[in-house]
Amino acid sequence: MYITDHPILGAEENTEMVNITVDGVPLRVRKGSMIAAALLANGIKVNRYTLKHHEPRGVFCGIGQCTDCVMIVNGQPNVRTCITPVEENMVIMTQNKD
């Protein structure tokens, strides 16, 4: 869910959207927002699975320090999605899903 109105921050001025796909599913998300945040806004909380035990991981630090949020972005794995903004036509995949 996006926070459109906020007592301190006011109404969201940035309403421009871009198109991305996540695991093949098309989504329209707020332009310039970080990938992990755009996904959270759409209820997607799992960004990757661990290699050995296949456990889900999601955002944990939100500022690029923990690597729990890494995903495959435009074919490139291990992209920290909490500090990487969405771009038009970005192809995003859950890392190590199967």
């Binding site: 959270l40 939100g62 500022i63």
Partner: peptide, 25 residues
């Protein structure tokens, strides 16, 4: 503690105030 939805307080703060998304309800 590693389950998605468990996060640093600063992480939730970033999601809310910078990214303007709800990390949970």
């Amino acid at each position: 503690w590693t389950i998605p939805g468990v996060m640093g307080a600063g992480c939730a703060q970033t999601m809310i105030n910078v990214n303007r998304v709800m990390p949970g309800t």
